[in-house]
Amino acid sequence: MICLINKNVINMRNLILHHLEAIIESGSVIGACRRLFLSQPALSQYIKRLEAEYGIVIFDRSVSPWKLTEEGEHLLETQRKIQQLDEECRQFFRDRKGLKSGTVRIGSTAYRTATILNPILSVYKKQYPNVIVRIEEGTTQEVAEFADNGKVDCSFVISSMVPSSLESVEIYSEKVLVGLPPNHPYTKRASGEASLEEKFPKVDFKELDGTPFIIMKRGQIFNQYYYDLCQKHRVPPQVVLETQSILTVPALISANVGAALVPSTIADDCMARNVRLFSLGNDVPQNNVSLVWKQGKYQSYALTEFIKTAKEIFLPAFTHQ
């Protein structure tokens, strides 16, 4: 049996997904209209026609911002699956023709984009210049969900947060350190105690009781690490500032805003700003990073080669640690 798919039907399905996601991400019909370049009456009428067509209520309009009903969530998830299957089908045919093209959608935090993804892309794009790379950035938790729900083809995720529905390979590891401002009392005291060979002297987290901390926003693994340490040592949390990007933290510590947990990957930036770094020993786990993708999902040639490139760049160093 040969099934012909009308191109207009595919476009209509993409339109449904595009409009629903715009409303959800914008938090309002007005915000979605700005993104879609539509008038409010036009978008409202479109949603009403959809509801009439499917015989459901898509959004709960009694709350602000609007929320999807259970039926609306099912419709959105179904439209995402339809789009994903269509993209996989098209990519399969491109691969059969031997075309080194297509699209790779990658989930990453802004920090992982700068420290892990950029080195991979510098090699990958030279080898496959016709492949389009789309980066979807979010929190540590969000990028894992992106891979799980099919929003992206693969994501960089903290290994301890990888769900069982995803395949993964560990490619990177970093220590979790605590950075103290130049004028912190412990920094001055420790300067006279540490031996020259100790790059990151050990600090007891209890010694930092009363220290204001810069922390990552909820959904980031470093946010969880901070509150776990406070609970373990019975130290009351003292948060002076929350930030979305770990890359802004060295400058904030250097400006004496507060202390912070930082990955060893940005140790050089911290030390260049006169931030003193300390080890927490076994109080906090090592930060292992995995590249993850959905189990059972068709892997395009472009995705397969991206995973291969990531392994070639990072696995040798990771396995010899």
Results as ranks from 00 to 15, higher is better:
Ile132Ser: 10
Ala144Cys: 01
Glu198Gly: 06
Arg134Met: 09
Pro129Ser: 01
Leu180Ile: 15
Glu193Arg: 15
Met161Thr: 01
Val123Ala: 15
Pro185Tyr: 05
Pro185Glu: 08
Glu145Ser: 02
Val157His: 03
Ile158Lys: 09
Asn149Gly: 05
Ala190Tyr: 08
Ala190Lys: 11
Ile132Val: 11
Phe146Leu: 08
Val157Tyr: 04
Val169Met: 01
Ser122Trp: 08
Ile132Leu: 07
Val131Ser: 14
Ala194Met: 13
Thr187Leu: 12
Ser122Val: 15
Leu180Ala: 09
Val133Asn: 10
Pro129Trp: 01
Arg189Lys: 15
Arg189Asn: 11
Gly138His: 08
Gly179Asn: 06
Lys151Pro: 03
Ser195Met: 13
Val176Ile: 13
Ala144Met: 00
Gly179His: 10
Cys154Lys: 12
Leu166Asn: 13
Tyr124Pro: 12
Pro185Trp: 06
Glu170Arg: 08
Gly179Tyr: 07
Phe200Lys: 01
Phe156Cys: 07
Pro163Gln: 03
Lys125His: 00
Leu177Ile: 09
His184Ile: 15
Asp153Ile: 11
Asn183Thr: 14
Tyr172Leu: 04
Asp204Gln: 09
Ile171Glu: 07
Thr140Phe: 03
Ser159Thr: 04
Ser168Thr: 04
Asp153Ser: 07
Glu198Leu: 12
Asp148Leu: 10
Val169Gln: 00
Pro181Tyr: 03
Asp204Ser: 07
Glu137Asn: 09
Ile135Lys: 08
Gly192Tyr: 02
Met161Trp: 02
Ala194Cys: 11
Glu198Asn: 14
Tyr186Val: 14
Cys154Ser: 14
Val143Arg: 10
Pro182Ser: 15
Val152Asn: 05
Lys202Ser: 13
Val143Ala: 15
Arg189Leu: 15
Pro163Trp: 00
Glu198Ser: 14
Thr140Gln: 06
Val123Trp: 11
Pro129Leu: 01
Glu197Ile: 02
Leu177Ala: 07
Glu193Tyr: 07
Phe200Thr: 03
Met161Leu: 03
Ser195Asp: 10
Asp148Ile: 05
Gly138Phe: 10
Val157Ala: 11
Pro163Tyr: 03
Arg134Ala: 10
Val203Pro: 03
Ala194Glu: 14
Lys206Trp: 11
Phe156Asp: 07
Leu177Met: 13
Val157Lys: 02
Lys202Phe: 05
Thr187Pro: 07
Tyr128Ala: 03
Phe146Thr: 04
Phe156Gly: 12
Pro182Leu: 11
Glu142Trp: 01
Asn149Lys: 10
Gly192Arg: 05
Val176Ala: 15
Ser155Glu: 04
Tyr172Lys: 02
Gly192Gln: 09
Ser164Leu: 09
Ile171Gly: 02
Gly150His: 06
Asn130Thr: 14
Tyr186His: 07
Glu174Gly: 15
Glu170Leu: 12
Lys199Val: 14
Ala194His: 14
Asn130Pro: 02
Ile135Leu: 12
Thr139Gln: 06
Glu142Asn: 10
Pro182Met: 03
Val169Glu: 00
Val176Met: 04
Tyr124His: 06
Ala147Leu: 08
Tyr124Lys: 08
Phe146Asn: 06
Asn130Ala: 11
Phe200Ile: 06
Glu137Thr: 14
Pro163His: 01
Ile171Ser: 00
